[in-house]
Design a protein around this nucleic acid. Structure first.
Lengths: 294, 294
DNA sequence: GGACATTACGTGTTACGTAAAAATG
DNA sequence: CATTTTTACGTAACACGTAATGTCC
């Protein structure tokens, strides 16, 4: 039961093919076959059905563990090596679209760029998963992520990272201007909207799963899916009545086709957090964190 | 960067000795030395100071990752093998003292014992860490743990386990009868007590850390530590004025020397959760879970 | 000097690649 | 029949044990 057997198992399951996994991992097909056989022999369970290659029930269960394990091993490696690595002349910050919009991060990075001209600053806008994963794996020095939560509650992140809260703003329901509720009282309870049509836009807005968890209400079923990261597109979908979505009011002020109605109950905030592994002293990453966190 | 290098590293760090770790892991001292050398070579960092053997800064950081990684690997192994293993004639349930007191678990187990006389039922009372860990590792089939949280909020468990809430009761401050607050209004706000003397009894009562997290208030400093698992002893310590503690009121009714004053604010509950990995259908564990959960 | 960690060296196992066989659609 | 996985086998690397050497209280 070795770690890199898990890695090839995960790769085979993801790619759905022994040969493809072998190519990705720089192995022979035969080697991959042997590794899977060894793993199945150790556990005395069939993990994959062949032709087509897909995980069995036991394999699926193992995947649920293996993916976080491998992520954490990469994080451990990145964390430890970062402690000794020379302070790089490079700073990569990954952030979700809303984290960028709701924090002073991009402005602070611009400031840092002028103050340290020799520093190579890179910004990566990505989904929440990508931000957490690339920060944990050390592909980014810092991450900025967002989500909804009760006031002062930290976000629940999957990856093993330190986190500090940066900002909290109220959340609002984005409605088409001609929606019946748009002219209603300026604040609204979410419980009345659990049965409405919602847009699931996990890369931009809070996920509906997070919404259910934060409110404790089932419902919030998706009528429309949007996998992109563009806020404008999301507004247009909302304006055209494809469903509701939850965004900070300040983002909607310049959008004439939609109205933002603040959520009164339950008490929720849209929260931005800075996440990071080890921050070596005197590193650009530590400088940025110090600039942005107070 | 192999998993079992991590295992020997953790063992060496815990035991504080290469030879002791070698004895525990059934290796030669030389083998352990080589493994640590290999790990340090891979990471290009010194992980341990020798004589005395203690982790360096980098080593300490690695430990923070390594321990959960190894726990999760054991959990993965236990989970997958449990899916195929024959339904055992044995049922081991680990629980914290308060989980036992606040749930019908022991009664249900007694019932199960009479209904399935051939079943070998074992109860293990242990600390929260032990319950979580032994359940994750498969040493126990099920665990019952407790803690304080906001109403309907799940407990935050470290181990990778499924959890279902079983019970929630109000929390009360346990005071000596002659305490000034004992005769005061029957409900009290916790914020007034942040600066009081508290007893840290992590195995029985909620940990003070959990208290700070749940209330968002710093403070709750310990004036007295109790590592045991006995509720009566904790009551005596509270009665003698060594400090306050937080327990469900119903446990104090038969204790003449202490009074329980319910906590009014913030809204907190003492919550009991059933935790488990995979529950094979038709297993005694699944039967118990079905009996106790609705 | 004694306990403990490291280095040196020999050996058995393992893990991979090449190549041939089997299986599946 | 072609593509993909499995099996067979040779080789090279590795990881461990034994034993000798080094090092710190």
């Amino acid at each position: 039961v070795d770690a890199h057997l898990l890695r090839t198992f995960v790769t085979v399951a993801r790619r759905g093919s022994f040969s493809a996994a072998a190519a990705e991992l720089q192995y022979t097909q035969a080697a991959v076959s042997q590794q899977i056989a060894a793993l199945e022999g150790d556990l005395k369970v069939t993990l994959l059905r062949r032709r087509p290659v897909e995980p069995t029930e036991a394999g699926a269960r193992l995947l649920e563990h293996a993916v976080p394990i491998l992520l954490r091993m990469d994080a451990a490696l990145a964390d430890v090596t970062r402690m000794t690595a020379a302070p790089a002349a490079q700073l990569t910050v990954a952030m979700t679209p809303l984290a960028a919009a709701l924090s002073a991060a991009t402005a602070t990075l611009a400031e840092l760029r002028t103050r340290l001209p020799r520093l190579d600053v890179t910004i990566r806008i990505a989904s929440r998963e990508d931000v957490a994963e690339s920060t944990a794996r050390g592909k980014a020095d810092l991450g900025l992520t967002d989500g909804i939560a009760a006031p002062n509650d930290p976000l629940q992140l999957l990856a093993p990272l330190s986190a500090t809260g940066l900002a909290e703003v109220g959340v609002s329901v984005i409605l088409p201007c001609d929606h019946p509720l748009a002219t209603a009282p300026s604040r609204i309870g979410l419980s009345h909207l659990a049965d409405a049509r919602w847009i699931d836009a996990p890369a931009v807005a809070p996920t509906l799963t997070a919404l259910r968890r934060a409110t404790g209400i089932e419902g919030f079923r998706a009528a429309c899916w949007y996998d992109g990261t563009d806020t404008l597109t999301l507004f247009r979908l909302a304006a055209e009545g494809h469903g509701l979505t939850l965004l900070p009011a300040q983002l909607a002020v310049n959008e004439p086709s939609v109205t933002a109605v603040q959520v009164r109950e339950p008490r929720l905030v849209h929260r931005v957090e800075l996440v990071h592994g080890v921050l070596p002293a005197d590193s650009p990453a530590a400088a940025f964190a110090a600039l942005i966190s107070p």
